[in-house]
Write a protein that binds this DNA or RNA. Sequence first.
DNA 1: GGTGAAAGTTTCATCTC
DNA 2: GAGATGAAACTTTCACC
Lengths: 155, 155
Amino acid sequence: MDEFDAKILNIVQHDNRLTAAQIAGRVGLSPSAVQRRLNRLRKEGVIEADVAIVSPDTVGRHITAVVGVVIDKDRPLQKALSEFRELMLESPEVSRCYDVTGEEDFIVIVSAKDLKDYEAISRELFMENPNVRRYKSSLVIRMVKSGTAIPVDEK
Amino acid sequence: MDEFDAKILNIVQHDNRLTAAQIAGRVGLSPSAVQRRLNRLRKEGVIEADVAIVSPDTVGRHITAVVGVVIDKDRPLQKALSEFRELMLESPEVSRCYDVTGEEDFIVIVSAKDLKDYEAISRELFMENPNVRRYKSSLVIRMVKSGTAIPVDEK
DNA sequence: GGTGAAAGTTTCATCTC
DNA sequence: GAGATGAAACTTTCACC
């Protein structure tokens, strides 16, 4: 990982369909050097995935919610935690789930078609979930920033 | 937007480096039909972007935090809100920012190198920010799910 | 890391339903 | 309207310097 890798990562995190030649022009390497680095970064797992980002609104997902979840500590804790994680992983409406410190145990990002759909989803995932003691939904009014990029220091 | 589009979107949201021929095999179309649809979906903004996802840990970003922010309502509200949004947009350590309903005004996802770095960032963005009345950090212990995919109903 | 030839992929005009 | 075919243009791969 040197300065070239950092520059390449900072570029492809915003557009991974640029050709090696285009990236090469910006970072000052030959196209094949860029390709070699990209292939290495992918093999090593620095680049975890290459994905298309879909605009939720255009596919009828008009609601995003941020949900703070507290697990019921009266139940076997490890089991409750792993069951909850499993449920999050297998629910397609859950786009992200963080295990966190603080008052809440998990913070979950949910995507739903509309409010009615969100109510059904939150009832199923949280309200009727015996592992959940309580939860608090915050509806997203406006996506201020919805990036996926991690800053990579160019040294 | 038909069933073919939905299937294509559900595929490229997990891997946008598949070739049109590979996608065609899975959805039951010819490669050129898949290409035309992908180009259309990109032009129409259904596909907002095509990006590489970088593993934060591998580039030295070991801390992720979810921060709930309450804006100081004693200040001119619209100005405070837009200044705060602007700050989030221009801060590379902020990967996401949601304007939300409920107790908090914003929920912010921050990426930092380590705890010391996080303290410096949160001091600058939140503690010393006159537009912020109070904020609450939750440190991410474990990324349970870190997807970017939105479910697209295949009819 | 660079170069260049081979293999693979996308683009686009054309034909068909 | 949308899908299939095939040739041209472009991109990636890989052996070699």
